[in-house]
């Protein structure tokens, strides 16, 4: 159910501009763009770039909430701008800033190196002790086994959860929501045998234990991955493992 079309004809955008060659720090600049009932913030940015100021830099690709490139802060809240309708922000102005908690490359473009490093650190791929021979066929999985991790596999790496996470904002080493949910996705995959390799990092202070369950990562996630839930579950598993290591000190580490 959407509201009736508004009679607004323009809407004001306040856009954080950062041009390293001229700006000491990001500055807000104001632009009036046409208002269309069916436009999203990304449409307004595209209009702005095409008709008003071609120097504006931002990332986008699919326009349908799949690619995860157009995440920005819209009125202070992490959003995919392709899914944030102008009509929900009437009468404006709409403040558009680069995703919080990341360095800014230029205008609305953030530096993603830290995320990429942490992303690889949890080994987000299926790890096998040994591959079974081809003639034994594929690795089969029951629907219940699939259901055990499917939710965590829906992540599109848009990083909105990082922009929402105050712990990530303040703690450089924290692996962060999406990466920990991804670790959980592979740890819970019945075809994977790499849990032991991931554990040391995941169960460390830089992993799940920096999280204080603020929960905003899950609130802003456009794919309902629920990273906060993934981390809580990993805490339970880590705790069980910790106590078990005392009961069976010579068991597998």
């Amino acid at each position: 159910m959407t509201q009736a079309p508004s009679d607004a004809t323009t809407i004001r955008l306040e856009i954080a501009r950062y041009r390293p060659e001229q700006d000491e720090r990001p500055v807000l600049e104001r632009y009036d763009v046409p208002y269309r009932h069916e436009w999203v913030v990304l449409d307004a940015l595209n209009y702005l770039k095409d008709h008003i100021d071609g120097t504006l830099s931002y990332r986008w690709s699919c326009r349908m909430g799949i690619c995860g490139s157009c995440g920005m802060m819209v009125n202070g809240v992490p959003k995919l701008t392709c899914s944030a309708f102008l009509r929900d922000y009437l009468p404006g102005p709409i403040r558009v800033e680069p995703m919080a908690n990341f360095p800014v490359e230029r205008d609305l473009v953030t530096v993603l190196d830290d995320f990429m490093e942490k992303f690889q650190a949890v080994k987000p791929w299926i790890i096998r002790d040994g591959e079974q021979p081809l003639e034994e066929g594929e690795y089969r999985q029951t629907p219940a086994q699939l259901a055990d991790f499917k939710q965590f596999s829906m992540c599109i790496n848009c990083m909105l959860c990082y922009a929402a996470c105050p712990v990530y904002q303040h703690e450089d080493e924290f692996l962060g929501p999406a990466v920990l949910a991804l670790a959980q996705r592979y740890n819970h995959d019945s075809r994977d045998q790499g849990k032991g390799e991931r554990q040391e990092l995941i169960w460390s202070d830089e992993g799940i234990w920096d999280c204080t369950f603020v929960g905003e990562c899950s609130a802003v996630c456009p794919k309902h991955v629920d990273p906060a839930g993934a981390i809580q579950q990993a805490k339970v598993e880590s705790t069980v493992g910790w106590y078990r290591s005392f009961l069976a000190p010579f068991g597998r580490g």
Binding site: P20, R25, G76, A100, F102, Q169, V214, G215, E216, A219
Partner: peptide, 26 residues
């Protein structure tokens, strides 16, 4: 190009309702 370093807020827990509720909860 020199990136603008990420900003940290000392008052992040006052800035949005979900964060305020979090701090009250704790």
């Amino acid at each position: 190009a020199r990136p603008y370093p990420r900003e940290r807020s000392n008052a992040w827990f006052l800035e949005r309702w979900p964060y305020r509720v979090f701090v009250l909860r704790e």
